[in-house]
Design a protein around this nucleic acid. Structure first.
Lengths: 123, 123
DNA sequence: CTACAAGTTGGAGTGCGCTCGAAGTCAAGC
DNA sequence: GCTTGACTTCGAGCGCACTCCAACTTGTAG
């Protein structure tokens, strides 16, 4: 797949894909003889995975760290535990975030209900 | 209350509080004869309210919009519906966000479980 | 063969939400 | 009266995650 296909498939821009490679979030992508990037299905799966991490607000720095561990651990299980811990720490953060969001939503619902009451009074 | 008290009470920095006033997120705060800001309990309640909107990732621009409506509607109900709608639109966004987070968390849990399996295989 | 779209690089620019620094003012304690 | 420290204003700077630009090369279509 060429860069535009991956952009279409992931919703990321071609700019962003090149930038991801530059910062080490995407390991060196293969090229055709003209120097153009050729992405594999594996690259696409990885992009979907980090897309979810991003959706969960994992900082790019941390995703890069995960990517590095993955590279180093390619032919060994040396980094398995480290990678799992990285994910677990983030999972906990997301859960706390969701708890706070839930609490805020309750307040917001109350506020909206209050507004409805005000509007009814003046109806 | 002076600025440092409000900073301590809200967790915002004095810098941020001045900036909030500058951008219109906080209507002009009273001053003592030395020109120093004197915050009221109302100011504090407002800061807690917008703190929750921030926690829910409402853009500052939109909070400013809400603040403007509140100012204009001080002695009338002209802006009640507009303010409610603003909050409702945001509520919907937060709900969608939480749905996506929930879906991502499921994938993340699966991934973590996979890592545990790998580690057990090598134990 | 030419035109043109789509790719390449490196580096600069953007928008957001603060965050900080410089220079000056004010008031309470000694 | 003098020092100290919290305040004031204004504007610049920062970290993040892109986003865009300029200049150039490549490969396909007519």
């Amino acid at each position: 797949m060429r860069i535009r296909d991956v952009a279409a498939a992931t919703g990321l821009s071609a700019h962003t894909l090149r930038w991801y490679e530059k910062i080490g979030l995407l390991r060196s992508v293969e090229r055709d003889r003209g120097g153009r990037r050729l992405f594999t299905q594996d690259d696409l799966r990885w992009l979907e995975f980090i897309g979810r991490l991003r959706e969960m607000d994992m900082p790019v720095r941390e995703m890069v760290r995960y990517a590095e561990l993955r590279e180093r651990g390619e032919q060994g299980e040396a980094t398995l535990a480290a990678r799992r811990e990285l994910l677990e720490v983030h999972r906990q953060r997301v859960r706390e975030r969701m708890d706070r969001l839930t609490a805020c939503l309750t307040h917001l619902d109350d506020k909206i209900a209050w507004y409805r009451g005000q509007e009814d009074d003046h109806a």
